[in-house]
């Protein structure tokens, strides 16, 4: 199964497959996604797993996080080597971000990826959301998981946004920092969209990107 809820029966996972962490307040709402840092022969629900993920800042397997579901695009060794180059290319930018006073400076919510540029347009560093990091890492390796054109991303209201980013509903200042103007809804790429993009046959994952729907904020996706 390309994507699955984890249970007590162990399943294997491979390096750079997608790991997902659920919200503690909203059942089956996917709050966070990242990449498995290593192969795992036995994976169960709530296992603490080292990830390569956008915390922020980017972590490359240092800490662990409890996961409840996972997805795989049946990555080949070639894909893994290409994703590794994407990570290597940006890792130093995030090592610096981890030291900087404002660690949010290299995180973005809307859009899912953006750059910090100098006056002539030269990119100094890249920012990602957690979902954005996974999506762009896979794109770099030629796997386009998800449609991310702003006009085709389902609008997200304050309730779901707060499940993704706890505390953001009560903080207009935090929303403004992340370019979430007004009262919403906003076309934010949520972590659950990535997992639902992987909940398709392997050949479909490689053939075309998934069109996210509102119910894809959850896994398994809700039909709305």
């Amino acid at each position: 199964m390309p994507a699955q809820l984890l249970r007590d029966e162990p399943v294997p996972a491979h390096r750079y497959d997608v790991a997902a962490h659920d919200s503690q307040d909203l059942p089956n709402f996917v709050q966070h996604v990242g990449l498995f840092a290593d192969d795992r022969s036995e994976l169960r629900r709530n296992d603490q797993v080292p990830l390569v993920h956008m915390g922020p800042p980017l972590e490359t397997g240092e800490g662990t996080i409890a996961i409840q579901s996972m997805g795989t695009a049946a990555l080949r060794t070639d894909d893994i080597l290409q994703i590794q180059i994407f990570i290597d290319d940006r890792a130093a930018e995030y090592e610096a971000a981890g030291i900087r006073q404002d660690k949010r400076a290299q995180y973005c919510v809307l859009p899912h990826v953006e750059s910090f540029q100098e006056l002539d347009g030269t990119v100094t560093y890249w920012k990602f959301s957690c979902a954005g990091f996974v999506i762009e890492a896979y794109r770099f390796a030629g796997l386009d998981l998800l449609i991310t054109d702003q006009g085709r991303i389902p609008p997200v209201g304050l309730h779901l946004l707060d499940a993704a980013y706890p505390g953001i509903a009560a903080s207009p200042r935090l929303r403004a920092h992340f370019k979430l103007q007004g009262d919403g809804p906003w076309n934010v790429v949520l972590a659950g969209y990535v997992l639902n993009a992987l909940n398709r046959p392997a050949d479909a994952i490689r053939r075309e990107p998934h069109q996210p729907t509102r119910g894809d904020a959850f896994f398994p996706g809700h039909r709305m």
Binding site: A92, E93, E95, A96, I99, E118, T122, T124, Y125
Partner: peptide, 14 residues
């Protein structure tokens, strides 16, 4: 080396 990386990125970009 982390700081040198920061310096290189800013130096070349600017």
């Amino acid at each position: 080396i982390v700081a040198v990386g920061s310096a290189i990125r800013k130096y070349v970009a600017a």
